[in-house]
Write a protein that binds this DNA or RNA. Structure first.
Lengths: 198, 198, 198, 198
DNA sequence: TATGAATGAGAATTCATTCAT
DNA sequence: GATGAATGAATTCTCATTCAT
């Protein structure tokens, strides 16, 4: 049907498999996604999956790793130290939502699936932690008022949470990306910058 | 082990089962939680689970329903129309985080598990939708500046997202409840009330 | 719902249960019929079924016994030694098909279900054996030609088989009862009476 | 027990499985036959059954299909247009009873089990319907007397029923095959050909 | 390199059957 | 006499995983 088995170089096979895996994981969720289905979608045999990734867990972890990297690359590419802080924020948020918009499945697999799947939470938490740190940093550097580090981290956590919720809506197409960028920038800038303790 | 099977009236057994189910679902997630494990935790036999709930799906749905009700009751109990809007907000948020703090598992099962489990999302989405609506309403009623309804809903979505993220941290004990209340009140009050478009 | 449990005398309860059981067995077949369903249809509790009949097997056997008796009574009632052999045959066949026609479920449970259900075949085989014997007897008494007993029994077997097949059609309503009586009488009378060996 | 799992090509395994399945279905009946038992008899693991046949239903249907084909082949092989009608009838009946005699289990599974098992009746009814049609045709073509088509079909139904009943006895060894052939030929030829309406 | 063939282990679900009241 | 409550034991079916080629 599909023709002779093609001898593909390792790197390409790997991508092909991860593509298929992400597809299927995003569609059915980690548990309901069967190795059978993934192999079929990748148009290879199951033993190949095991040869390359060893186990379902490892395969899922690899998906997360690849997508996290792609994600971070997208964000990093948007950073430009020569801009004003506010513009940096804007660019960062636009890059974030842009990625989510164009990679709905990544977002689903990487974040939402992984985050609430005990054994994989750590893999995501890392990236997220960094995002929170970074946000806290920006907040502090542009805040007119003095807060403890702990307070800035808390604000950052809330902001990131807002961002994730909005990203969900961008991913499912129920809200417009640019409107979302706008909102989040304002939320980050005006809302938090001025917070002062009671 | 536990002694002979005790004849309990239906109502009590039902609660016992739901307690056990929530425990196990929270611990392992919907898929990885086996009916076996739940029956064992409830110290009853599997057929009882099926006699009372019919299927794993129905059991999970019943968990969500019971906890959602408890949750809404907690929020409703905190409402007091005689207070100032800001105090109402404060009370509401404190009730919300208070519930999450004292019912970590509920939060996990109700929200995080259910929300990203295709077949159950609807059950949660309802409550959440209402929360967003309500928040949007409050925002509009106390906003000094004019925005479209759509914009208020968007802000509300972000705010609720922030609240959920913070709730996660409250649930896992990594941040202090009162500090979180403070932050969210400010975020809701100061941050969004003053938002204006570019 | 159904009102208080009525204390019914044993005999009536038994009929009520058998009626329900035959209904359910006829509808779903022996295996697929659950004691639950039977109890529900009889509007009594499962323990009652067990109190009266001890086991599903016994219950099924009881169904067969009751219906076999009713069946034989119907046939016996049709016998009239003062008639000519041919008229006796006609009456017997008419009684048989009449019973099947008015008791489709009995026919199904008694014959078709039981006959091919290993453990119950014996219960049916008895009645059938007698029918074959009787038929063989009639054949011999009215045959113009000499055959061995074995041959008469064989003919009777075939005849009874034809009768059963026709009865199936009468039961499912796909053929008319009187036409079927006609056919079988002729088959018995003309067809077999004249058979002679090569 | 049997030694290591042998890698057999698909086609062979398929036959092996069907053989085992027919055995077990014939022995216990459709419902009481467990996939476990079938797998054990075939000396393979349960998942193989499901890999090849998908479900118990499908497996049973496959049994019926294979045996029906073998059965029809046997009958078809016996047809010879150059013979006289009566000889054709004789050959056909002999082929039929020959098959039943040598394939008791087939007969059991194909006909008696399937026919009274709601979901599978259709699979058998087809073949049977054709047999009835064919018989009706032969009856008409050789009848000296005029009847309606409906009457011929009715006669054919009875005849086929007789044949099936006799086949049951041939299958269980309680009567002799050649005697049975004789009887049925006569029944078909003499008995029915001459029937006339009242 | 690549895979068709195979399975151990465990999932959800259902049933006939029995106590304790 | 009658039943609500309870279960042990199967049953069908699926899945991640591994050989043998």
């Amino acid at each position: 049907m599909t023709g002779r088995p093609k001898r593909l170089p390792r790197a390409i096979r790997e991508q092909q498999m991860l593509d298929a895996a992400i597809d299927v994981f995003a569609e059915h969720g980690y548990h309901a996604a069967s190795m059978n289905a993934i192999a079929a979608r990748a148009e290879i045999s199951k033993p190949m999956l095991y040869l390359y990734y060893g186990s379902k867990d490892e395969l899922f972890a690899s998906c997360i790793r690849r997508e996290s990297t792609r994600f971070l690359d997208a964000l990093t590419g948007a950073a430009d130290p020569s801009l004003s802080p506010r513009e940096q924020l804007t660019h960062g948020i636009r890059a974030f939502l842009g990625f989510v918009h164009q990679n709905r499945q990544s977002w689903h697999v990487m974040y939402r699936q992984a985050m609430y799947q005990k054994s994989f939470a750590d893999l995501v938490t890392g990236s997220r932690e960094r995002a929170v740190e970074l946000t806290a940093l920006i907040l502090r550097s542009s805040s007119r008022e003095p807060h403890s580090n702990e307070q800035f981290r808390l604000m950052a956590t809330a902001l990131i949470g807002a961002g994730e919720a909005v990203a969900d809506r961008v991913a499912d197409g129920s809200i417009d990306k640019e409107a979302a960028v706008d909102l989040l920038v304002n939320l980050g800038w005006r809302g938090l910058a001025g917070k002062k303790p009671q």
